[in-house]
Simulated assay, not measured.
Amino acid sequence: MAAIDRVDDAPPLTIQEVSRLSGLSEPTLRYYERIGLIDAVDRDGSSGHRRYSPAAVETIEALACLRATGVSVRDMRAYLRHLDISDATRLRELFQCNADRAAEEIERMRVRTRYLQLKADLWSARERGDTAAERRAITEIGPITSEMRSW
């Protein structure tokens, strides 16, 4: 309870402070507010500058983590909606779907890395005049090229 009280008692933060804290740019913070991903941010009475409450900062930090993992704005909206109603099943599904997406991306990056390494090997073999190594690289590149075209 004491930690929650400290968060609730924390002073509001400026957009610059929230940007530094979350890693999200100021334009991104304004965009998230404009599209309703975060609630309208209170403004300082005298200057009109945004002042982010501790609750808003907590939401923004969660969104920053989601964004860093490649979660779409659509899924961020779903996350917030299902979080509000404590829908554990939907949240689990949402995170599993995004984990599966990330795993596919990793596998594609592995294939791309293998392709690039084989191309480097091919040119290295050509540079050395090693025709056997060149043929091996060409043989291995073919299936990888076909796989990448299927994406």
Score class of each variant (00 low, 15 high):
A2W: 10
A3T: 07
I4P: 05
R6A: 15
D8H: 09
D9N: 15
A10V: 03
P12M: 04
E17H: 09
E17Q: 15
V18E: 07
L21M: 11
L21R: 11
S22K: 07
S22V: 06
L29I: 10
Y31V: 01
Y31D: 01
I35Q: 02
G36Y: 11
L37F: 06
I38Q: 04
D39Y: 08
D39V: 01
D39N: 15
R43C: 05
G45E: 14
G48P: 08
H49C: 08
R50D: 08
R50I: 02
R51H: 00
R51F: 13
R51N: 04
R51K: 12
Y52N: 06
A55G: 06
A56S: 15
E58Y: 00
E61C: 01
L63F: 12
A68V: 05
A68D: 04
T69K: 13
V73W: 00
V73S: 09
R74S: 03
R74N: 03
R74A: 10
D75A: 01
D75F: 00
R77T: 09
L80W: 00
R81S: 05
D84L: 01
D84S: 05
D84G: 07
D84F: 01
I85A: 09
S86P: 00
D87R: 07
D87A: 14
T89S: 11
T89M: 09
T89V: 15
R90S: 07
L91G: 03
R92Y: 03
R92V: 10
F95T: 10
Q96R: 15
Q96H: 13
D100V: 09
D100E: 14
D100Y: 09
R101A: 12
R101N: 10
A103N: 04
A103T: 01
E104Y: 03
R108D: 03
M109E: 03
L116K: 04
L118N: 00
L118A: 09
K119H: 08
A120T: 11
D121K: 01
L122C: 07
S124P: 00
S124K: 13
A125Y: 05
A125T: 01
R128L: 02
D130N: 02
D130M: 04
T131N: 01
T139Q: 11
S146I: 11
E147T: 14
M148R: 15
M148P: 02
R149A: 13
S150V: 05
W151S: 15
W151C: 13
